[in-house]
Simulated assay, not measured.
Amino acid sequence: MPIDFLQLADIVAPQLLGCTLTHGGVGIRITEVEAYLDSTDEAAHTYRGKTPRNAAMFGPGGHMYVYISYGIHRAGNIVCGPEGTGQGVLLRAGEVVSGESIAQNRRGERIPHARLAQGPGNFGQALGLEVSDNHASVFGPSFLISDRVETPEIVRGPRIGISKNTEALLRFWIPNDPTVSGRRGYPKE
């Protein structure tokens, strides 16, 4: 069943797990994501409102928001929620399922398969993301999101790698998958 990207980011995020995003000759099965909500979410790029940098996050849903992280990495979000709300799902990790040699070349060194798209910056590099991909639809022609073949087990826990709104349970991942960038199993109780 196709994902309705007009739903809220925390609804869309777990639906993306197991889907494959293809771009630039590489397909990545998504294994870890984080939801970023509207202006109420202090960790979201949209917290302080719309700017030229984050404008893609304000819609429409089903489009890419690509930004430069730490001055070097291209990280990608899939925009969701009603247009104008500033929500998205960060692509944190995945498994390269097609175009592995292209992904290896983009990474610039010999990387173990499970680590090719492990972490938001590596995911973006393996997929060949550029800031010019902002606003591109995930339904073509440059990107293509495919439905998942089967529904995986999904774990929900706090986001990682941020300093604000850290208690929010807005990170979703496939437990024990070797491509997941953070804690791979279940969160400690």
Score class of each variant (00 low, 15 high):
residue 140 G to P: 06
residue 23 H to G: 05
residue 100 E to R: 14
residue 123 F to C: 04
residue 175 P to C: 02
residue 54 N to D: 08
residue 48 R to Y: 10
residue 36 Y to R: 01
residue 18 G to W: 14
residue 127 L to F: 01
residue 109 E to W: 10
residue 107 R to P: 07
residue 80 C to F: 06
residue 56 A to V: 07
residue 55 A to L: 09
residue 189 E to F: 10
residue 141 P to C: 08
residue 130 E to D: 05
residue 179 T to F: 05
residue 135 H to W: 06
residue 147 D to Q: 15
residue 86 G to M: 10
residue 101 S to D: 15
residue 4 D to H: 09
residue 125 Q to W: 00
residue 137 S to R: 08
residue 23 H to T: 09
residue 53 R to F: 05
residue 65 Y to G: 08
residue 143 F to M: 10
residue 160 I to C: 00
residue 28 I to L: 09
residue 109 E to H: 14
residue 152 P to W: 12
residue 151 T to K: 07
residue 186 Y to P: 01
residue 121 G to C: 00
residue 4 D to W: 04
residue 133 D to L: 02
residue 31 T to L: 09
residue 46 T to M: 03
residue 136 A to Y: 11
residue 48 R to G: 13
residue 186 Y to E: 13
residue 91 L to P: 02
residue 86 G to K: 08
residue 84 G to W: 04
residue 140 G to Q: 07
residue 55 A to Y: 12
residue 183 R to N: 11
residue 177 D to Q: 11
residue 99 G to W: 12
residue 137 S to V: 06
residue 128 G to D: 04
residue 130 E to T: 07
residue 55 A to M: 08
residue 116 L to Y: 14
residue 152 P to M: 11
residue 161 G to A: 03
residue 146 S to F: 14
residue 28 I to M: 11
residue 179 T to S: 15
residue 65 Y to K: 08
residue 64 M to S: 07
residue 107 R to K: 10
residue 174 I to K: 04
residue 171 R to L: 06
residue 138 V to C: 03
residue 167 E to Q: 13
residue 31 T to Q: 12
residue 111 I to R: 13
residue 91 L to D: 05
residue 135 H to Q: 07
residue 105 N to C: 11
residue 86 G to L: 12
residue 164 K to W: 01
residue 169 L to V: 00
residue 150 E to T: 15
residue 47 Y to V: 00
residue 143 F to K: 09
residue 10 D to H: 05
residue 10 D to C: 02
residue 47 Y to R: 01
residue 11 I to M: 06
residue 163 S to M: 00
